[in-house]
Amino acid sequence: VQRGPVKPSPGEHRLQYAYSLWFSRRTPGNKTSSTNYEQNIKLVGSFCSVEQFWALYSHCVRPCDLSGHSDFHLFKEGIKPMWEHDANKGGGKWIVRLKKGLASRCWENLILAMLGEQFMVGEEICGAVVSIRFQEDIISIWNKTANDQATTNRIRDTLRRVLNLPPNTIMEYKTHNDSLKDNSSF
């Protein structure tokens, strides 16, 4: 597992950005707080090429096979998957709630679009999260500037296209500032 700055090996296909994959799981009975959240989140590895991504991804459990309250977070290297991080604090996320059984396919479609720069919003994308919960699963994509509506609309339209979900699928946008206030998204 590569930690710290990553480099592509000869012959590999470089990505526009380097990314880090994180994993977190809520331990039963543990009260949620920002401190607990930060302690629970573990770096799995970092990559900067297509080949390095597949090598890491192939070793990870698919989201649908996870149990309990677990999350994968795939963020640009240097951005911590926390609302309070400088790159995130003025931002927000699009949220899509999924019926059980769809998370693995949707997560793969989402992250391939992100790694392949399909969102076409410059530096705006921060990362993506898949959250495994009891009744439903949730995927989200985080961007830097919550009040830039042209950008958030563009992200929503690309997300809808790459996830290939029914047209009536509900997509919600939530600013991290609101999440911090209501503490709802742990």
């Binding site: 090996s9 296909h13 080949e51 597949w54 090598a55 392949g116 790459v162």
Partner: peptide, 21 residues
């Protein structure tokens, strides 16, 4: 500079490259 863009199919093809193992 130019952005490095990959379509989904291209990324899927590279999944089977020997370099990705």
């Amino acid at each position: 500079g130019t952005r490095i863009i990959y379509e989904r199919n291209k990324l899927m093809q590279m999944r089977n490259s020997p370099l990705a193992r």
